[in-house]
C-alpha cells in the first residue's frame, strides 16, 4: 500500500474530528489553568477580607481572653512562633549552609555528594507530621514534656532541606570563572569559599533562609505535640509554648465566632509573611539567573 495522494486542494478543511479534538483540548487546558488559579484567589480573598477586620493592637500585645469572654489577643503565639523559629534557625542555618557548600563546591571530587543530595531530597519529602513524631520521640519523651525546644528541634529538621537546596542554588549561580580566578591567585578552596563565593552568594543564601523561616512559621503539624500550646506568655524554653499555626488549628475548630475571627487574623499574618518572602525570593533568584 502507498498512502493515497489526497486532493490537491490545500484549503480542504481539517477533518471535523481532528478540529474538534484540537480546539477542545485548547479550551480544556485553559479552563484547567483557570480552575487552578481560582483557589489561590479565593484563599487570598477570604484571608484578606476576614483577617483584616480582626486585626487590632490588642492582638499583638494581649494574651488570649479567658474562655467565654470576648477580646484579648494572641501576643504569646506571635512570641512563641518567633522564639521557636529562632531556635530552629540557629540549628538548621549553620548545618544547612555548610552542607550546601559541600554539595556545591566539592561535587567534582566526591561521590559522597550524590548520596547526600539524595538524602536531602528524601528528607524534603518526609511529611512534617512524621518530623513531629520524631521530635516527640527524641525530645519530648527524654526531656519529660512539651517545650519550645522540642518545637524548635522539629522545625529545624523541617527547614534543613529547604536551606540546603536554596543555598546550593545560590552558590551554583556564582560563575565558575570566579572560582578559577581565585584559585589562579593562589587561594585555596577554603579562602575562595570564604572570601569570594560566600559574599557573592549572600543575597541568595539569605533569601533561602527567609523562605525556610516563612515555611517553618506556618507549619503546624510538627508543633501540636512537641510545643503543644499555651494560654500564657513564655515561661521558659522547657515549657509548652504557643504558636500562631497551632492557634489557627485550635481556634478554627471551636464554635466561637470571636475565636474563629482570630484564626483568620493569625492566618493573615502568616500569609503576608509567606507571600512577601516568596515574591522577594522570586525576584532575587530571577535576577541572578
Amino acid at each position: 500500500m502507498t498512502m493515497s495522494k489526497q486532493s490537491d486542494d490545500l484549503t480542504q478543511p481539517l477533518e471535523a474530528g481532528r478540529t474538534f479534538f484540537n480546539t477542545g483540548m485548547t479550551i480544556l487546558s485553559g479552563v484547567f489553568t483557570l480552575l487552578g488559579l481560582i483557589p489561590l484567589f479565593l484563599v487570598l480573598f477570604y484571608v484578606l477580607s476576614q483577617g483584616f477586620s480582626s486585626l487590632n493592637a490588642d492582638i499583638f500585645t494581649q494574651l488570649p481572653a479567658p474562655s467565654g469572654t470576648l477580646g484579648g489577643g494572641f501576643g504569646n503565639a506571635i512570641q512563641g512562633t518567633m522564639i521557636m523559629v529562632a531556635i530552629a534557625a540557629s540549628i538548621s542555618v549553620p548545618i544547612g549552609v555548610l552542607t550546601a557548600i559541600f554539595l556545591s563546591e566539592y561535587s567534582r571530587d566526591s561521590g559522597f555528594v550524590q548520596y547526600v543530595r539524595f538524602g536531602v531530597n528524601v528528607l524534603a519529602g518526609v511529611p512534617s507530621i512524621v518530623i513531629g513524631v520524631f521530635a516527640y520521640g527524641v525530645v519530648v519523651t527524654t526531656s519529660g514534656g512539651f517545650s519550645a525546644y522540642a518545637g524548635g528541634f522539629a522545625l529545624a529538621i523541617l527547614m534543613l532541606p529547604i536551606i540546603i537546596r536554596t543555598t546550593e542554588e545560590a552558590l551554583k549561580l556564582i560563575p565558575w570563572e570566579l572560582r578559577l580566578g581565585s584559585f589562579a591567585l593562589g587561594a585555596d578552596r577554603f579562602n575562595t569559599i570564604a572570601r569570594v563565593i560566600l559574599p557573592a552568594a549572600l543575597p541568595g543564601i539569605i533569601t533561602g533562609i527567609m523562605l525556610a523561616v516563612s515555611r517553618a512559621a506556618g507549619e503546624t503539624a510538627p508543633l501540636i505535640f512537641t510545643a503543644l500550646f499555651s494560654q500564657y506568655w513564655l515561661e521558659g524554653l522547657n515549657k509548652p509554648t504557643a504558636s500562631l499555626a497551632v492557634l489557627i488549628f485550635n481556634y478554627a475548630t471551636t464554635p466561637y465566632a470571636d475565636l474563629q475571627h482570630k484564626a483568620w487574623g493569625a492566618s493573615l499574618m502568616l500569609l503576608i509573611l509567606v507571600l512577601i518572602i516568596s515574591i522577594v525570593a522570586r525576584i532575587v533568584f530571577r535576577r541572578r539567573s
Partner: peptide, 23 residues
C-alpha cells in the same frame, strides 16, 4: 500565571484547613 500556581504551594497547610472548613 506560572508564579501564581507556585504560590499555591507556599500557603500554609493550616490556612488551607481554615479556608476549607469555612469556605
Amino acid at each position: 500565571i506560572a508564579f501564581m500556581v507556585e504560590l499555591l504551594a507556599a500557603i500554609p497547610s493550616v490556612v488551607y484547613g481554615l479556608w476549607g472548613i469555612f469556605v
